[in-house]
Write a protein that binds this DNA or RNA. Sequence first.
RNA 1: GGCCCCUUGGUCAAGCGGUUAAGACAUCGCCCUUUCACGGCGACUACGGGAGUUCGAAUCUCCCAGGGGUCACCA
Length: 499
Amino acid sequence: MIRVRFAPSPTGNVHVGSLRTALYNYLFAKQNKGTFVLRLEDTDRTRYQEGSVENLLHALYTTGVVPDEGLQLENGQPVENGEYGPYIQSERLSIYKKYIQQLIDEGKAYYCFCSKERLSRLRDEQRAAGETPRYDGHCRNLTPEEVQEKINNGEPYVIRLKLPENTDISFDDVVRGKITINTKEMDDQVLIKEDGFPTYHFAVVIDDHLMKITHVIRGEEWLPSTPKHVYLYQCFGWKPPVFVHLSNILNDDHKKLSKRQGDVAVEDFLKKGYLPEALINFLALLGWSPENEQEIFSMDELKQSFDIHRISNSGAVFDREKLNWMNGQYIKKASNEVIVKGIKPFIEKDSLIHVPSDDQKESWLQKVAELLRDRIDFFAQAPEELEQLLDDHYQIDDSEEAQDILHAETVPILYHALESKIKEADQWNADYIQKDIIKAIQKEHKKEKIKGKMLYMPIRLILTGSMHGPDLALIMDVLGQETCLERLHHFSESLKEGK
RNA sequence: GGCCCCUUGGUCAAGCGGUUAAGACAUCGCCCUUUCACGGCGACUACGGGAGUUCGAAUCUCCCAGGGGUCACCA
C-alpha cells in the first residue's frame, strides 16, 4: 500500500513550488490507489504565521490536491482525520520524547550543553580558518554523572545525534540514483532543541515511519540532509522510505523562484484569475513529461499518465508566458459561467467600464464573456481588453490611416444609414446587428460600393475609436443600442467642430 | 570554501549506442479574416568544453568549466 505525504510548515502563503510537490505526491498516491497524507510541520514556533493553515487548505482544495488523511477541511474548518495522528507535529511532543530517550539509552544521541554563543564563535573561527563549520564534539563524551549534574543545575541543553566516524551512508533516490555521503561531511545534528521541540530532521523520520509513509517526495533542498535521516532509520532498525527529490523551480535568472520577481504564491495566481486546472496542468509539466506529446491534461488524465520515473532531474524555469498560454487554452474551452464568474470582479472594480444596471447585467456579462474568451489569457486581463471599447472617454485613432478612412466620401452616407438602422432596430443582438444592420447597409448601398473594409472600418472607428478589436457585431451588442447612437452623434459633433 | 546535485534551441522538454536530434511556449513569416484575437501552415535557433571506450556517442567513463543546492537549536 502506497502512502505519501505533503508536510509543509505554516509559515505563510503556499508557494507554487510547494503546490507542485504536493501535486506530485497526490498524483503518485492516486494512480497507485494509495493514500495522500497532509501533515503540518510546525516545530518552529517563531516562524508560525497566522492564517497559514487556512491558506494552505484553501490552496490545496481549490486546486484539487485534496488530502485523504491527516489535516483536512470539513465545513470550512481544519480538522485532523486518520489513525496515525496527531498530524500536527506540535501535538506529537510526547512521541518524540519517547524515541529520543531510546536513542540516548542506546548511546546514539547525547546531551549537549554548549551555548549558542560558543557555537556561533566556533563557526566563525572555522569559517575564518577556511574549514567547513561543524560541531566540535565538545559534549560528545560527557559522563552520565556530568550530564546529570548539569541537568540538575538547570543548565539548558539540546540533544544531538551521535554520528559514527568515517562511515559511508548511501541511499537510492528515484530521480538521482545512488547517493553516498561520508559521516565526515556530516554534523552531529541537533535532534531536540532547547525548547524541547524536535528539529525537522528528527520529527520527519519519526513521523514518516509511524505514519507508514512509503515514498518521500520532496524538494531537492533535502538531498544533503537525507543521509542523516537514513542513519536515523538505521538506528531504530526501521526500513527507510523510497526517496524522490524534486529539482527546484527557478526564476528567469535561474535562481530559486522568489517573490522578488513577481508572484510565487498560489493565492496570487488564483487572485489574478488563473484557473486552478490550468495552474495544475502547468505545474505538472514543470519537471515531469508524459510519454506522448499531450500538453493539456485534466487531473484525471494526470493521475493516469503521471510517472515518477519520468521526473526530470534539472531545475526548471517558471515560464509565465507558457502559463499564460495554457490558461488561455482553458479559458477558450471554459463554459460561459466560468468566464463570467472569473471576469465579473475585475470588471466591476474598473471605474472606466460602464456596467449595465442589475436587470441587464447578467446577459451583458454573458456577451462580454463570449467576446473575451479568445482574447484573454487570465481574467485580470479583462478590464484592459474592455477599457478601450467601453470607456466613455475613448479617443478616435488619429493616425493618418484611420483619418483617411473616416474622411472617405462614402462615410457620410454610411453614417446616416447606420444611424437610421440603429434607431429603427427593434431588437439588439449580435445576429440581428450583423444581418439587419451591417449586411443590410451593404445591400442597400451596393452602388456606392460600401462594403468590405470601407463598410466595417469606419463603423469600427466611429464606435470604438480603434482599428482593432473583436467582431464588430459583438462589440455593438455589448456596447448597446444607446451607446452606439451616442457615439455616432459624438462623432458627427466632433466632425462639425473640426471643420 | 567543503560536500552533493545538475548541464539538449531564449524557456519547458523528448531522446536511454546508429534518429533528417521530437513536440510545446516565445519570436518571425505566410494563410484565414472587415481589423485584432483565435486557428492553420512554415521558418528560426540546441546536445557546455576536452579526453577516452566503440565500427559508431546527445546517449557509456574520466577530467574541466558553468549553474544550483547545502553546510542552523529554519523547515
